[in-house]
Write a protein that binds this DNA or RNA. Structure first.
Length: 526
RNA sequence: GGCGGGAUAGCUCAGUCGGUUAGAGCGGCGGAAUCAUAAUCCGUAGGUCCCCGGUUCGAGUCCGGGUCCCGCUACCA
């Protein structure tokens, strides 16, 4: 079975999870579920970046130890994963002993390769941004204080630091991009990265002495590792690195790192360079997603439009939220969400389209078919019946094609086009009239309809796992017949006798609504 | 300043190698039907395809110029 190792980015443990974290987790979970249903041996890992000055300071401000503080934040992220039905197989926290081993091993390999040296770093440093800034980026603030672009004050800092010889890797990185044109996707981000590297790279400061909350540098414990080496290595820690015999060692290199567009450079430049230096293979792909905006505006406390993942789920239900994010936002681009847009999607697509199709077909079966999967064999299929099946059968291929490029929204849209087609098919066939005139044909029409529904529901499981499980229950699809293998029709695509079709005569449970219509509550919506 | 992307129906967007009446979804309007979560189906809505000029038998679709927006990046100060 081919392996598929996918990660989310490693959130910084400095605050509660927000919509952006939720979006990334949901998208990564959906990709992972798709690959798993498609027969891959998947490993889905997330992590927490828990070291650094800001964590140390925030913890001090709150009167707790850094470890206590990050334990609390990590628990919040874990709870978010549960809430979103997007639990990862593992959560690697940078404060775990296994990670210290891993990151020190990486460091030592890079050092052994001659890529790490001691020097001095000086510059304008912003504690709040946890970053150095070039003088040209600064503006003058009050009292002669210099300010970073973010508005945070900066101080002139000089410290001894270990450096990584990033400058030596420009050519190798460019060769890697050229040989792997989909290393970063969407393509626009790869182009930006290539342009950046072509301008030349400077060496990277990778340790700090100004704070102590971090992994000690091997052989020089007054230094702790700075975020780059520490946080990125989190990904390979998950595979048990440096233990080559670890059960998960076989999963490296990762297939996909899903990240937000703001951290592309770290993943597309620093990370492969570190790995090259350490003699390890680079991940196969860095998949970049955009940002989500509340009504087109960046969420911020001052604007007062902060919405938590939990409040969205509470207002609309989990699967409608998952569906909205994955269907409405072209994956890789920025997106916008609003109450109106979410309600429009959930009512038009979920309640009216697929939900109602299930309800209208299954309730007819309940009334006219003794609650069993209809037997289609009593009537000769008409061209429209076979055309309907053919369209449904073709979906798995379309879905795979779109998911190969991580075009999640296109895969979902393709499924819903077939659902819409099924509603047209149903309306044109008028099975409620056939109930009085031609019951054999009615059975055939109902059968084709719920078979189409079965295919759609199977394919939509990655996006809406809970709701689609319920729909497949209503169709009496056994648990072992819910993977994409159950969508294989071989040479018999578009035929009634294709393999894996619903089994006529199987008892069906009483129909019930999968997606209720959203009606405006009394209180104002979020 | 450099590089790149974008500007198409009220809204969100598709528009292949330039070619007949510029499309989809949602919304709006009209109709049908009644199996169904007042859901569904059918029809319709006439948008200077940002502006100007050019190439061409013919341009949303290519070329030049301009305006505005966005991303990456640089520099001046």
């Amino acid at each position: 079975m081919s392996r598929f190792f996918i990660t989310t980015a490693i959130p910084y443990a400095n605050g509660a999870p927000h919509i952006g974290h939720a979006y990334e987790r949901i998208a990564t979970d959906a990709i992972q579920r798709f690959m798993r249903l498609d027969g891959r041996d998947t490993l889905f890992v997330t992590g927490m970046d828990e070291y650094g000055l800001k964590v140390q300071q925030t913890a001090a401000r709150e009167g707790v130890t850094p470890q206590e503080f990050v334990d609390r934040v990590a628990a919040e992220f874990e709870a978010m994963g549960e809430l979103l039905n997007a639990r990862a197989d593992d959560i690697v926290r940078t404060t775990q002993p296994r990670h210290a081993r891993s990151v020190q091993a990486i460091w030592e390999r890079m050092a052994a390769n001659g890529d790490i040296y001691l020097s001095k770093y000086s510059g304008w440093y912003s504690v709040r941004d946890e970053a150095y800034f070039d003088e040209s980026e600064l503006t003058d603030g009050p009292e002669g204080k210099k300010l970073a672009p973010s508005g945070a004050p900066v101080d002139w800092v000089e410290e001894e630091s270990w450096f990584f010889r990033l400058s030596a890797y420009a050519d190798r990185l460019l060769a890697h991009y050229a040989a792997n044109p989909d290393f970063v996707t969407p393509e626009k981000y790869l182009n930006e990265i290539v342009a950046f590297v072509k301008r030349g790279l400077s060496d990277l400061s990778i340790s700090r002495t100004a704070f102590s909350w971090g992994v000690p540098v091997p052989g020089d414990p007054k230094h702790v590792m700075y975020v780059w080496v520490d946080a990125l290595t989190n990904y390979i820690t998950a595979t048990g690195f440096p233990d080559a015999e670890a059960p998960r060692a076989k999963y490296w290199p990762a297939d996909v790192h899903v990240i937000g567009k703001d951290i592309t450079r770290f993943h597309a430049i620093y990370w492969p360079a570190f790995l090259m230096s350490a003699g390890l293979p680079a991940p196969k792909q860095v998949v970049v997603h955009g940002f989500l905006f509340n009504r087109g505006e960046k969420m911020s406390k001052s604007v007062g439009n902060v919405v938590s993942p939990a409040s969205l789920v509470a207002a609309y239900g989990l699967d409608p939220v998952r569906y909205f994010f994955l269907r409405e936002v072209p994956f890789g681009q920025d997106g916008s969400y609003s109450h109106e847009a979410i309600v429009a999607r959930m009512n038009a697509d979920l309640a009216n389209d697929i939900g109602n199709l299930g309800q209208r077909s299954l309730s007819m079966i309940a009334k006219n078919g003794e609650g069993r999967v209809p037997d289609p064999s009593g009537a000769a299929p008409a061209p429209e019946d076979l055309a309907m099946l053919a369209r449904a059968d073709a979906l798995i291929g379309e879905a795979r094609r779109h998911m190969a490029n991580f075009q999640i929204h296109l895969y979902v849209a393709a499924v819903f086009e077939v659902v819409a087609e099924a509603n047209r098919y149903f309306a044109n066939a008028e099975p409620w009239k056939l109930a009085k005139s031609d019951r054999a044909r009615m059975a055939l029409v109902l059968y084709v309809t719920i078979e189409t529904l079965r295919i759609a529901a199977t394919l939509l499981q990655p996006v809406m796992p809970g709701s689609m499980a319920k729909l497949l229950d209503l169709l009496a699809v056994p648990p072992e017949a819910r993977t994409f293998a159950a969508l294989e029709t071989g040479e018999a695509a578009g035929r009634l006798d294709a393999p894996n079709r619903l089994e006529p005569g199987r008892a069906l449970p009483a129909p019930s609504a999968v997606f209720p219509r959203y009606v405006e509550p009394e209180a104002t919506a979020p």
